[in-house]
């Protein structure tokens, strides 16, 4: 079995689950490998993460290279670069894909510089060109044009992949991968940065484009008897508050919290639209949202067309009721934890 042409994906995970971009890259690597007649390898680094080998296989990996070490438990540039560089030098895959996440963007250029390998960052597509050369496409000049590039270096090529561009393919739960445990030899004295802690995003300060949950209000949420209900639910959900243009015009939110075509385009996991009719100027800014709950007293409101859960109600009643239930759940959980 020749290893020289393998396509590798550096797996990234959070709270014991693979990041979406890792799954996307596996699908892309799978396609390339099938065309080139080679294998997909997934590099899994961390401490006690062997359980993630199965999902890596389901999404397309033929083999999983496991680097299990206490010094890899948390991402540091020095440890990850050293461990990966040694592995790549030894096995010489033709392509290594890394997600363009905060850590991936830190790791990839350092790794490329160490290997003296060409790197294309924030790629959208990777195509197998003539003679097996990989052509990578990325957005350039403020995302106005797309640039195609190739690596002029021989040997391994590197690319970081923009999350959310490829899409996650269908997993095949019957797939299995060969698991190889790679010995890690790291010197703790050569790790020159120390992670001291993680600061959770503060929903009140966070930029809306980075928020996981957004509760948003519009014309129907205007007025002193209504807007507090938006804020109450946001607080209970740990959500950021946003709004439509009308909400901004009414002075309920600052400009930077306005969502829509002329404001911010957001991509939260959950978007709650309360008292927003759903003009296309607004819905154009929430296309990236995974789940949308719409609450409006008009059953014909266009917002319902883009909602996953549609609730016709007076937001003054339903929002505080939901917030109360959420708070009660949090309290009972806390008590449960103390017993």
């Amino acid at each position: 079995m020749s290893q020289a042409n393998e396509f590798w994906v550096v797996a990234e995970y959070k709270d014991g689950e693979l990041q979406e971009v890792t799954l996307e890259m596996l699908g892309e690597a799978r396609k390339l490998a099938d065309k080139a007649g080679s294998l997909v390898g997934a590099v899994l680094m961390g401490e006690g993460v062997a359980a993630l080998a199965d999902p890596l296989a389901h999404y397309g990996a033929d083999r999983v290279l496991l680097l299990d070490d206490a010094l890899l438990a948390q991402y540091t540039t020095d440890a990850y670069t050293t461990a990966l560089a040694e592995l790549i030098q030894e096995q010489a895959p033709s392509l290594v894909l890394i997600g363009a996440t905060a850590n991936g963007k830190d790791l990839a250029p350092r790794l490329a510089a160490r290997l003296r390998a060409g790197l294309a960052t924030n790629c959208m597509t990777i195509k197998l060109g003539e003679g097996g050369a990989l052509q990578m496409t990325r957005l350039d000049y403020g995302a106005q044009f797309q640039r195609t590039m190739v690596c002029s270096s021989t040997g391994t090529q590197l690319a970081t992949i923009q999350p959310g561009v490829i899409g996650v393919g269908k997993p095949d739960t019957t797939r299995q991968a060969e698991l190889t445990t790679v010995e890690v030899k790291l010197d703790p004295n050569k790790i020159r940065t120390k992670a001291l802690g993680y600061l959770k995003p503060d929903p009140e300060k966070i930029d809306l484009t980075e928020a996981d949950i957004i509760v948003s209000g519009g014309r129907g949420a205007g007025g002193p008897d209504r807007w507090p209900a938006i804020e109450e639910l946001a607080a209970a959900l740990g959500a950021a508050v946003g709004g439509s243009r009308v909400a901004m015009d009414l002075g309920l939110i600052p400009w930077k919290r306005m969502i829509g075509i002329s404001g911010k385009s957001v991509a939260p996991k959950l978007y709650v639209a309360a008292g927003i009719s759903g003009a296309s100027h607004h819905t154009g800014g929430i296309r990236g949202a995974k789940l949308v709950i719409a609450i409006n007293n008009d059953p014909a409101a266009p917002i319902f067309q883009s909602a996953d859960l549609k609730v016709v109600a007076d937001l003054r009643e339903v929002l505080p009721a939901t917030a109360k239930r959420l708070r009660d759940m949090a309290v009972s959980d806390e008590q449960g934890g103390q017993q």
């Binding site: 390998a117 060409g118 640039r147 195609t148 590039m149 190739v150 690596c151 002029s152």
Partner: peptide, 17 residues
Amino acid sequence: ALTKHIGLGPIRPRTKI
């Protein structure tokens, strides 16, 4: 240089799975 530009053009978004 380790990379080479071979094309620049209008954006053609890929079809997302």
